[in-house]
């Protein structure tokens, strides 16, 4: 990753306990996504995701995560150093997902905001996979 914009992200990579969700600043999330230091995971079901989603978010339903007994099925898709921001509609399913990710030793945070709030915060743009994370 580039260091240009990492000034706001040190909390993502420390060894400290997960930050309580109310302290997560969406601007910092946006930067982390832009830096490719994190991914945005939509833990709603596929049919919900198909209807309306933050552009570029990864659909990974909670129903699937609940089935996981080990980290192995996630390994092809999530490297060990990936930080996960999970969201759903109200932050309930995403909180359950974060507990699973955490148990599987991923660094994960639940976002209480719904799709529209996340798009309004610019997460859709930041999350576009091919967009460069570097400042112009």
């Amino acid at each position: 990753m580039s260091n240009n914009n990492s000034w706001g992200l040190s909390w993502l990579f420390g060894n400290s306990a997960p930050v309580p969700e109310h302290t997560i600043d969406l601007e910092q999330v946006r930067l982390a996504l832009q830096e490719k230091a994190a991914i945005l995971v939509d833990v709603r079901e596929l049919n919900e995701h198909e209807t309306h989603a933050v552009p570029g978010s990864i659909c990974m339903p909670l129903s699937w995560l609940r089935e996981l007994r080990s980290k192995q099925p996630l390994e092809p898709y999530l490297s060990a150093d990936t930080t996960v921001f999970a969201h759903c509609v109200k932050g309930i399913r995403s909180q359950a997902a974060v507990e699973i990710f955490t148990r599987l030793e991923y660094r994960a945070f639940s976002l209480p905001q719904g799709v529209d709030a996340l798009i309004a915060a610019g997460l859709g743009l930041a999350n576009q996979p091919n967009q460069s994370g570097n400042a112009p």
Partner: peptide, 16 residues
Amino acid sequence: RFVSKVDLGDGYTQWN
């Protein structure tokens, strides 16, 4: 089991 759907950003989506 459906695992995830990832927008690859180049007009393609990966279904896992």
